[in-house]
Amino acid sequence: MLQSAFIRFILLSSVSALSIATTGCGPSAPASASAAPTSSSPAAQAPARQSASSWLSGVLAPFETAMPTSGAGLTHRVSGIAGSVFGVPGTAQVVDVVTVDTVDGHPDLAPPPVVAPTIEAPSRSRRRMDLSQLDAAFKSATGGITWDEAGKNQWEALAPTLGKPDFLTTTEEDLTPSPLFQKFMNDAARKVCADLFTRELSTPPARRVFFVDVGPDESSDRAGARLDANLTRLLLRFHGSDVRGAEAQGHLDGWRWLYLTAEHLETPRAAWSAVCVALIEHPDFFTY
């Protein structure tokens, strides 16, 4: 989701910046265009008399005869201009990529109308659990098992390292999912999953929390639809993510793919181990 937002930002920033460049609002087009006046040339001294858009009209004039009157979209137009105007070697040919509506005999370089964006209402921030929540989340997901080494709870032992304040030298809790935090989550996931599997294997099926719909050594071929049932149950248990409804269709695909890939390479038990570790390392486990 965050990645998607970031990609959206990059795309939109690029599109907007380039849109501005095409209309002469941005600084890069005049400065680098081969046909544009340089900053030291006399022509550059008279920008007040010549608007940026009319300047760009002049720059584009030689191409106008080759321009279609409709068809190509904004992105294509921009790439065409970038290739020709910015003087990239080997690309300085006229291409019919710009849609131009003429208004009073001058090309109108405005982009097509867009739907006014709806500003999203404010919301709470998805955030990382604190250490006591994390400890509880482990116990809740595994039915009582948390990260401990030699009987010592590691969330308590490592609390200062993981940013829990002592209110003397530090007064604010660090809740960033930092590389250090991820490293310890990695350690925790492996240890807890190993402990969980050890317990599960010595527990009657009816009382298991992980291998509920499938056995630990049961292949996907044999398990059939029970594979999805178990994954669905685990997502609910570990992430609080309900993928049972039709609206959640497709949410299981990645998990099924992970299991099947691991099973293809190793045993079903190793594949479930991979799923267990992935469930814990997934942001949906330690954020809310």
């Binding site: 937002a5 959206r8 930002f9 939109l12 920033s13 501005i20 867009v114 964006p117 999203e120």
Partner: peptide, 19 residues
Amino acid sequence: FFGMGLLTAVVLSAVPVQA
């Protein structure tokens, strides 16, 4: 749209919009 310029892009990046 041009008037909104980069500001729009920044706002949209912070507030993803389905449209």
